[in-house]
């Protein structure tokens, strides 16, 4: 790109190009997962994990392309924001999905939460009944 393109410079360019393409492929992977997985909870895996790696690779390629050191803390803060927010939103969506029965039981090989949820629901129903009557 730049006229004084030394060997190292070219390698950094190649590395950041690879990062960009792999990072974009991660988004594509997320979309494929969204389309192909059978139920909400497995789609959620597809929506969260590639996002984090994809943004990491893209931010790293920005850092490599800018060729200055002071952008790295800024990029790190942006990535940490992503790291903190993605699991929380995935957990909230997953919890709502589990409670509203958006999952296919036949796809689960074991479910250790079901008994707990049913017990809690039975208890809540008892309390409701005693509260009304």
């Amino acid at each position: 790109m730049s006229p004084d393109s030394t060997g190292l410079d070219a390698w950094v360019d190649v590395l950041s190009a690879v990062f960009m393409i792999v990072g974009a492929t991660m988004s594509l992977g997320a979309a494929i997962g969204l389309l192909r997985f059978p139920d909400l909870l497995s789609r959620m895996h597809a929506a969260t994990k590639p996002q984090v790696l994809g943004l990491f690779l893209l931010l790293a390629s920005i850092g490599l392309q800018m060729r200055t050191l002071w952008v790295w803390p800024v990029l790190l803060v942006a990535w940490i924001f992503q790291l903190l927010t993605v699991p929380v939103s995935a957990h909230m969506v997953g919890r709502a999905g589990y409670r509203t029965k958006h999952l296919h039981r036949e796809l689960l090989t074991s479910d250790e939460l079901e008994a707990v949820v049913q017990k809690a629901a039975a208890k809540a129903a008892r309390e409701d009944g005693s509260g009304d009557g």
Partner: peptide, 26 residues
């Protein structure tokens, strides 16, 4: 379901962010 749509919207926003990142890097 609504939650599926929310999830997909989240992914769409992430794709938008990724595209902005590529633009900045290039």
């Amino acid at each position: 379901s609504l939650l599926d749509r929310v999830l997909a919207t989240d992914v769409l926003l992430a794709i938008l962010g990724g595209a902005l990142c590529v633009d900045m890097a290039v």
